[in-house]
């Protein structure tokens, strides 16, 4: 079993028996997609809610929820997944620092990312079947393509599979 790793604003698609992981999600979101028949799974590490926030015309599609989620779906379909079977799970979207630190819009980026990923999935008609979002702690996530389970690890917390 191989393990693919995606960094910030990156996406990857793998198939059974491999897994795909991203480390240290804070306010970012790891959006995982899975087709349980072909056992194809994908993960994108989204950093910001909307490409309308981009100050440049060219940007990395994986960076924003509204472009990163469609990018991952596209990669899944190209790899042979069936859109009718693809389901999604998301994790991350924490608020790493307590409010009161000023610049509240920046500090609330985690919850905004969560909402934006959900909206992007809904727009594409991909059902969101599980999530582990919010809170104020970092998360490492891994999607296993043998089972479609999405594992979440955090410092000082029990490992969790959704």
């Amino acid at each position: 079993m191989a393990n693919a790793r995606v960094g910030i604003a990156e996406a990857a698609v793998v198939r059974n028996p491999d897994s795909v992981t991203t480390l240290g999600l804070g306010s970012c979101i790891g959006v995982a997609m899975f087709d349980s028949v072909n056992r194809i799974g994908g993960l994108v590490h989204v950093m910001l809610p909307s490409s309308s926030l981009s100050k440049t015309k060219d940007f990395n599609a994986g960076k924003f929820a509204d472009t990163g989620v469609p990018l991952l779906l596209d990669m899944m379909l190209k790899a042979g997944a069936s859109k009718a079977r693809i389901v999604a799970k998301i994790a991350g979207g924490a608020q790493m620092f307590a409010i009161g630190g000023g610049g509240d819009s920046v500090l609330r980026i985690g919850p905004q990312n969560t909402d934006a990923c959900k909206a992007a999935l809904k727009k594409l008609g991909i059902p969101l079947i599980a999530e582990e979002t919010g809170g104020n702690h970092g998360r490492t996530v891994e999607l296993f393509c043998d089972s479609g389970e999405y594992e979440i690890r955090a410092i000082g917390k029990e490992k969790k599979r959704i």
């Binding site: 240290g24 804070g26 306010s27 950093m47 910001l48 100050k55 970092g138 998360r139 410092i155």
Partner: peptide, 24 residues
């Protein structure tokens, strides 16, 4: 702003602090 403390994974903290720069 008022400084705030977090004890957690370096990636979680740094990626958050890079999000504003990520716009450009």
């Amino acid at each position: 702003s008022v400084p705030t403390l977090a004890v957690d994974m370096a990636g979680a903290i740094l990626s958050f602090s890079l999000s504003e720069i990520g716009r450009s």
